[in-house]
Design a protein around this nucleic acid. Structure first.
Lengths: 200, 200
DNA sequence: TTAAACAGTGAATCGCGGTTCAATCCTTAA
DNA sequence: TTAAGGATTGAACCGCGATTCACTGTTTAA
């Protein structure tokens, strides 16, 4: 026994791992998953292609982990807005507004996370995170329905509906509208959501 | 000049072309676009792989044409429901119900048309048809807004919202629900749509 | 100082399914 | 009946990017 991993090496490896993920995140943020070829990720991280495979078994795994990290941030942000004090309707409006604002801030990333064609393993992560968004909204809906703030409805179904509504309006009309019109369009989306759940 | 295409040959070629499209449609309806490899399409059509290329320059073209055909039927069906006589709210409910019922009838095809990852050329067709659905709804919304049946709103944005709402609820909760629960879930989706546009 | 254990390298390999094409078969008009 | 023009065939080819691996460089404990 003449070699064993030390804290120093451990730290260095963690660093490289992070480097790879950040390189991939950067490429995806600019050109989507299709721009994040292994060789490109390696080049951006300043390492050899083969090195990536010391840290991630396949490209799909790398993408899946990247996807989880990026999506979790979004879910957390939405969750924070949903957990604010106040009436449910206001909190729903806030959660939706946060989702929209963040997506507009990095549209390429939003497209990659929401709609870009990806391989089945990453698609599975996407479905998982769609459900995560939906769960945040579902809890809020349950509370609002119980409190009489929202119309009686199946919160599970309605939450999914809101996720779909948000995705489509964001990637469709909203990103195509003039930047000056975005704010009012965002308001319109919030209104749609509130009406859909029957907020009083 | 010893050869010229006759009506007989013309007819035969049209037949083969249709055969190819039908074979592809069958495979997509069962296993999505990923199941429709050129060799599989050829096998199902009872011809050689190379023959497909006498009728379609590339796989993308074949898929694109298949996509157009299948989607146009759906749009037409929705348009027919939207054009029925009666108040806008009822017509919107009808159009949405038709969309849902048809998607449930062939769920694999619905998934392929709405959400399955596809190459960029086919994705472009998909966006085109999403817009086609949205246009049908948009017209209806305009009429309803003008007549005071719906809340004042941007019909373009709201139409996109409805398309997203439909897609997500269909492929998410609805297809996962027990068949016995589908009818009430479909009703719930219609209610969501009506509330979203502020139908009185 | 040494050798064991591991990390890094990047050119070569590989798998996959779309696409091609030389050989063959079929249809037509003379 | 014939030859020209086209259609069909399916095995071979190809492009692309993920993945591998033999080699080199580095770190560790004895």
């Amino acid at each position: 026994m003449a070699y064993r991993e030390t804290a120093q090496v451990r730290a260095r490896k963690d660093e490289v791992r992070t480097l790879i993920l950040e390189a991939a995140r950067g490429l995806v943020g600019q050109g989507g998953f299709r721009a994040a070829q292994m060789s490109a990720v390696a080049a951006r991280a300043g390492i050899a292609t083969g090195t990536i495979y010391r840290y991630f078994p396949t490209q799909s795994e790398l993408f899946a982990e990247l996807f989880r990290g990026s999506s979790q941030r979004e879910v957390d942000a939405m969750q924070a807005a949903a957990a604010a004090p106040g009436p449910c309707a206001e909190r729903l409006a806030g959660a939706v507004a946060v989702f929209i604002a963040r997506a507009l801030r990095n549209r390429r990333l939003a497209y990659a996370l929401i709609a870009e064609p990806v391989d089945p393993q990453v698609e599975a992560e996407r479905l998982e995170y769609r459900r995560a968004y939906a769960r945040v909204l579902e809890k809020l809906l349950e509370e609002g329905i119980a409190g009489g703030e929202f119309a009686p409805q199946d919160p599970h179904l309605s939450a999914a509906a809101l996720v779909g509504l948000l995705g489509e309006t964001l990637l469709g009309p909203l990103v195509k509208s003039a930047p000056s019109a975005r704010e009012s369009a965002a308001d319109a989306i919030v209104s749609l959501c509130l009406r859909a759940v029957g907020a009083r």
